[in-house]
Design a protein around this nucleic acid. Structure first.
Lengths: 340, 340
DNA sequence: CTGTTAGCGCATTCAC
DNA sequence: GTGAATGCGCTAACAG
């Protein structure tokens, strides 16, 4: 089945070294024998053993990605797509690792399955502890971070603070003065942008002269929690006129929950998300777009350069988030919503 | 940096073979030396070279997945998640390949980058041509199919026909007699279940005594096409009372488009999807659930067994789709929708 | 239970 | 331009 180079060599009437060279299109081989060897390989359906090749060259031909959370959600999936394209173009394979809970987290950092198993590691959207960082740095391979900045380490990230400020500014400009900011859980070190987005929001409302009485910060704990959050909003002192969600995932969960209690957007309430999730456009959700795909490509680009042993000129890339106003935001209505 | 086994051997005061055995927790090593070796390895932060290990054992420790389409969409992402869990538990890495267009398709089948690069290949939701099948079979490694049955080959798939029939039956039971079935594009060989679902639908309506005048089949060509499909529905001879979409992705695109023209679900129209997309529950979409996660786990399970050189008892697994009625389906209203 | 020996399949010197 | 050696780092078979 898996014929060896010797078989190919015999068939092509050359030596194994020539086969090796010819198959990798080395210029040290004449065109004639190159073709002859390729033909022989094809006939025997021979392929170079990656393991043997790697052992000899020291290059694995693979880049590993450590994903924070599940692979399924839009963000991570899109990210993988972006990386994949870059890697494929560079003829590198994509190896995936995932960390969804503490068990996986411990398992990964104990065994470090990526070690000596890839030419570079991408750590994506996953807040590491200092100890974990050190562990990775002792890995002996380049590590690139996505949405996580580490002094001295290559990274690609979005300016969450600026994005959150821009979103807040937009709502202020529309005339809103009473806000709620809804964020996901950010304990456990699984969060990355969350904290920065809250900061951006509070900084901007403060800059506008608003005080703590003018806004509230609510936590959203997973899918089933939308109604609870809406209940909190409704039972507060005053209903906010604008809700800024830390992510579109949250905003999209809030959307039907708000509609269910009779609140229309943007008439009764403005709702602004963050990320530009694929579903955001479909449901007319206004949002702050994060160019996930591009970010992923750039991150992979860094990883490729580093895997090649190169040292890219720019190793810390920051991209901008930009406002995408759609249908769920508008000026506040002067009186309180009639629905209340 | 990357210290070798010899270093560890020296430090632990044993031979390399003992190091090799100890590190893989072979029972042929005494507990004392096992610990000593592990300690030495830890101190030198040594890890076994996968390439060298693979070369010596012949096992790569990796399973490759060929995904049809992008990695981002819910279906593929969920699938990867399911496979990942199984593979990780078996201590196998997940290598990802993707085919989104003709170029990628040709590139993959020409170069076969997975060849001699993984212990097994999973082909997921991707309809192959006969030539491609042959090419894979000459690959020299086990191939497992997800949602694609191939005589003699191990596979896991859903019973699309039964699912589509059950959905249609449900709508018939509600009293519906005028239908539209909306399917995605299924040229290009990128489709798998699509055709079977249409067949299931038409078989069931035929069995109910309906004729071609009672239903129509419409094609949906991507996100932006929802309005066009709705327009077709509205401009037909008679508006159907129930719309069955080939997938939730399509149904979820139709949903806002139908609302936009004043059609309420289920008052004016029943809408039924297929797959149980994560967003389906959120938007109350009735659907036929496909247990993607489980299917993925089972597929990975087959791949693992085959990669181990085993021959699993059952190699062709079929799982059932089941109806999940939610809010978008109900009995038809007797007169035509007042909105018209 | 442990050490010695001999490859695994390729890439790369170095000669020619 | 090509072939003959050597070694990449580990595992396995064989002794002991």
């Amino acid at each position: 089945m898996a014929s060896s180079m010797e078989d190919v060599a015999a068939r092509a009437g050359v030596s194994v070294s020539t086969v090796s060279r010819a198959l990798r299109d080395s210029p040290l081989v004449s065109e004639a024998t190159r073709l002859r060897v390729h033909a022989a390989a094809e006939e025997l359906s021979f392929a170079v053993s990656r393991a043997a090749s790697s052992l000899a060259t020291g290059r694995l031909g693979r880049v590993a990605v450590l994903v924070g959370g599940h692979l399924g959600p839009w963000f991570n999936g899109t990210m993988l797509d972006g990386m994949y394209e870059q890697l494929r173009a560079a003829n590198l394979d994509l190896l995936v690792y995932r960390i969804t809970d503490l068990a996986e987290r411990q398992a990964f950092f104990e065994r470090l399955p990526a070690r000596r198993n890839a030419d570079a590691l991408i750590v994506a959207s996953f807040a590491l502890t200092a100890a974990e960082h050190e562990r990775l740095e002792a890995l002996g391979m380049p590590v690139v971070y996505l949405n996580q900045e580490r002094p001295g380490a290559p990274s690609v990230s979005i300016d969450d603070i600026a994005g959150a400020r821009a979103g807040t500014r937009y709502l202020l400009n529309l005339g809103h003065r009473r806000f709620a900011f809804v964020h996901g859980r950010h304990e456990e070190g699984f969060a990355w942008s969350a904290t920065r987005r809250v900061h951006g929001f509070t900084a901007e409302v403060a800059a506008a002269g608003l005080t703590a009485a003018d806004y509230q910060t609510l936590a959203f704990h997973g899918e089933t929690d939308a109604d609870a959050v809406v209940a909190q909003l409704l039972s507060g002192q005053e209903l906010p006129t604008a809700v800024f969600a830390e992510s579109d995932e949250i905003a999209l969960a809030l959307l039907p929950a708000l509609r269910r209690v009779g609140l229309g957007m943007p008439e009764d309430l403005s709702l602004l998300g963050f990320d530009d999730h694929e579903m955001a456009a479909r449901f007319g959700l206004s949002t702050i777009a994060q160019p996930v795909f591009q970010m992923a490509r750039k991150t992979a680009g860094l990883a490729i350069a580093l895997a090649d042993g190169g040292s890219p000129e720019q190793t810390r890339i920051q991209v901008e988030a930009r406002l995408v106003p759609r249908l769920t935001t508008g000026p506040p209505r002067s009186p309180l919503p009639s629905a209340l």
